[in-house]
């Protein structure tokens, strides 16, 4: 069952001079068994949504429903702690939260808090390490001795090891070099395809969204602007740029080319697709 936001508002510092409305009556659904991209400008409420999903924040009004139950329902308190394990949340720069003596212990921290047995923890750690592509020979090192990319992987593995039904990642690739970026996002996609869970990636980058997400939710200043698959989202590049967001560069290129009458009618959002379309166009003309 999906995560459903129903008319959710969230106000930071309610009843203080610093009151700031982060979300204003948003409704959307995070579907099962796919990668959902959450995109929006800084301050559009992306990170707030992440923390509403697992119950760290309580909506000022409206309900967040996970697996059919309102997670902030006072009647089932047990639900609250269970929800942290059901909705795994990877914060921005998660490597700053590593603290155990060894990477192995740190990745096992979540499962241990869930009350897993030692064998179960070992099994989960091994699996999580495989999913994120962490170098296994470094499992018994201190997390503070790792490189940035490896730290990031270890931190993400720490959440994956809890085997959450929903995995939410806030800017999982921020601050990594292009190779590390692609690698982590590819690994996450493989993870989703293998486990058939629901993965949410929060990002600024339309390129990442186009390459890795199945469904995209575009936010604008506290509300949902648009919600749908890639074709729906990227069909109107001008509207997106007016929000301060851009479509992938290749989509923009094709869009502009079409203005000059090139005539590629299908929606394009990856370089590979563009290549195919252009080749088809060329070979089609050749036949003529």
């Amino acid at each position: 069952m999906p995560i459903i936001f129903d008319n959710v508002s969230y106000v930071y510092g309610e009843h203080t001079p610093f009151e700031n409305k982060a979300l204003d009556g948003v409704s959307f659904t995070i579907e099962d068994n796919m990668i959902t991209g959450l995109i929006g400008q800084t301050g559009s409420g992306k990170s707030t949504i992440a923390q509403l999903c697992n119950g760290l924040y309580k909506p000022s009004s409206g309900t967040v429903t996970v697996d059919g139950t309102d997670i902030n329902d006072k009647k089932n308190k047990k639900n609250k702690s269970q929800n942290f394990f059901r909705v795994g949340l990877v914060f921005q720069y998660p490597e700053y939260q590593l603290f155990e003596e060894t990477v192995r212990k740190d990745i096992g921290y979540g499962p241990k808090n869930m009350g897993c047995s030692d064998e179960e923890i070992a099994k989960r750690v091994a699996e999580a390490v495989r999913f994120v592509g962490f170098d296994e020979s470094r499992l018994d090192k201190s997390p503070f001795d790792l490189s940035g990319g490896q730290k990031r992987r270890a931190a993400i593995a720490g959440v994956i090891a809890m085997e959450p039904k929903y995995l939410i990642l806030d800017e999982p690739a921020a601050g990594l070099d292009p190779t590390g970026r692609d690698d982590i996002l590819t690994k996450l996609k493989q993870y989703q395809r293998e486990k058939h869970t629901s993965v949410v990636i929060i990002s600024h980058s339309m390129e990442d969204m186009a390459n890795y997400c199945d469904r995209i939710i575009v936010l604008k200043k506290g509300g949902v602007y648009k919600c749908g698959d890639k074709n729906e989202i990227f069909s109107d590049p001008m509207a997106l740029s007016s929000l301060g967001l851009s479509v992938p560069q290749i989509t923009k290129l094709i869009y502009n080319a079409n203005q000059y009458g090139v005539g590629i009618n299908e929606p394009i959002y990856t370089v590979d697709a563009a290549y195919d379309a252009v080749m088809r166009l060329i070979s089609g003309e050749d036949v003529k």
């Binding site: 697992n54 702690s81 700053y96 921290y109 808090n113 869930m114």
Partner: peptide
């Protein structure tokens, strides 16, 4: 601010 973030993150990993 960082303390708040860290607390939130560790809570998300089940720290009590």
């Amino acid at each position: 601010e960082e303390t708040e973030k860290i607390i939130a993150a560790q809570k998300s990993r089940g720290a009590n």
